Simulated scan of single mutants.
Amino acid sequence: MGESIRKPAGYIKDFMQQVFIGLGVPVADAEICADVLVAADLRGIDSHGINRLKPIYYDRIKAGIQYPNAPIDIVREGPTTAVLDANNGMGMVVSHKAMAMAVEKAKKLGLGMTVVRNSTHYGIAGYYPLMAVEQGCIGLSGTNARPSIAPTFGVENMLGTNPQTWAMPTDEEFPFFLDCATSVSQRGKIEVYARTGKTMPEGWVVRRDGSTATDPNQVLKDLIAGEAALTPLGGIGEDGGGYKGYGYAVVTEVLSAALQGGQFLKALSGFDEAGERRPYRLGHFFLAIDIEAFTELEIFKKSIGDILRSLRASDKAPGQERIYTAGEKEWEAYRVRSVEGIEIPASVAQEFRTMADELGISGFDW
């Protein structure tokens, strides 16, 4: 498989920005797209980072099912709300705009919520709530996605991995940052297992006959063919609380589709009735809460910091040395990778070389 390499985050971001520009994405928009992807790897969320440049964005733009320079229409707007139409353009770009609008509204009136329809994959959901944190707000974002999750007691992939992601400022070095899917795992993590040749844990996937599967390469094929589905957070059945993940996935679907008249469930498969590829038409939602509309920002930050510190200081299970709170591992990854760089698997480095050759990009060593 070859050796992985390590490069500085800025170096990788510059390359990816050139790739997006080469595909027809405007310069400022390309900078946003590259920043979202690098932000994932810097925080240790490798499933949604640079490895997705080619299969998710490059290939879809080349296939004509994602548009590099689509207009963003504001369909409806009120003092605290807005509905945006991405027109099948870059999901990261419309999402950046949508969260910025939500924050601006929140700073004026306490709360701001925006929703987006006809969009595409927007990278890590956590990027956008972190934008709100920078402005002294609580941030929330979620998105629907192509069908992957089976409902509890079902075996058909119906719902996307549908994350609900929160970020809140604290008085510590890092914010509270909860970025996770409503499934036990997600397609991107399975792709990581496939690239590294690892066997998946049991229970991540349910097959048509109700059994589980652990071969990541076969699972990726079966997910596309509809022969397997991801399990909701909590796992197969109700004993582990699978109905909870299922329920939250539905909430995300509603807020990502019904609230803005967008597409949902099987309509997000990326294929039409004839089996031809088409735009995914995803939906997203963004919420910003201005903390100072409720209490002093510094009081809030100390309170949430005290909560998190108390949790980490609580009694540990035998054999365990540490209790984490959400955002802590991501912050530790960021501190290391922002200095030491980001590891690029050999397969991803080869994809970078391929894209550079096809677009005529020079000056980068992969």
Results as ranks from 00 to 15, higher is better:
Ile12Asp: 12
Gly91Asp: 12
Gly22Gln: 12
Glu238His: 13
Ile72Ser: 11
Val75Asp: 07
Phe15Tyr: 15
Asp29His: 10
Ala39Lys: 11
Asn118Gln: 12
Tyr58Met: 08
Ala313Glu: 14
Gly234Phe: 04
Ala102Trp: 00
Val36Gln: 06
Leu230Lys: 03
Arg281Trp: 06
Gly327Gln: 11
Gln263Pro: 00
Met158Lys: 14
Ala288Val: 15
Ser183Tyr: 03
Tyr193Ser: 08
Ser183Thr: 11
Ala313Gly: 08
Ser211Lys: 07
Trp166Ser: 13
Gly197Leu: 08
Glu31Thr: 11
Ser303Lys: 04
Leu37Asp: 02
Glu340Met: 03
Lys97Met: 10
Ser256Ala: 10
Lys62Asn: 14
Ser310Tyr: 10
Leu255Asn: 05
Gly245Lys: 06
Glu332Gly: 06
Phe352Arg: 11
Lys97Leu: 14
Val19Gly: 01
Ser347Gly: 08
Thr325Met: 08
Thr214Trp: 05
Tyr324Arg: 04
Arg281Ala: 13
Pro68Glu: 14
Lys221Leu: 14
Pro129Gln: 11
Gly126Ile: 13
Thr81Ala: 02
Arg187Ser: 02
Thr170Phe: 03
Val93Tyr: 03
Thr170Leu: 02
Val192Asn: 12
Lys105Ile: 00
Leu308Cys: 09
Val115Ala: 15
Ile224Tyr: 02
Glu227Cys: 07
Tyr280Pro: 03
Glu343Trp: 01
Val184Ile: 07
Gly341Met: 09
Ala213Lys: 08
Ile291His: 09
Met1Trp: 05
Val336Phe: 01
Lys244Val: 13
Ile190Trp: 08
Arg309Thr: 10
Ser148Asn: 14
Gly363Gln: 08
Ala9Leu: 03
Phe352Ile: 12
Val206Ile: 15
Ser185Met: 06
Ile56His: 01
Ala356Gln: 02
Tyr57Lys: 07
Thr196Asn: 12
Ala293Val: 06
Glu343Gln: 10
Arg52Ala: 00
Met168Ile: 10
Gly247His: 04
Phe174Gly: 07
Phe294Leu: 15
Ser256Cys: 02
Lys54Phe: 03
Tyr248Pro: 01
Gly188Ser: 12
Thr231Arg: 05
Asp73Ile: 05
Met113Phe: 01
Ile307Gln: 09
Ala106Phe: 08
Thr325Asn: 03
Arg322His: 10
Leu311Asp: 05
Gly89Glu: 12
Val339Ile: 13
Met131Arg: 07
Ala82Pro: 04
Glu77Lys: 11
Lys221Ala: 07
Thr81Trp: 07
Tyr280His: 13
Leu84His: 09
Gly235Lys: 10
Gly126Val: 13
Asp290Gln: 15
Lys105Asp: 00
Gln18Tyr: 10
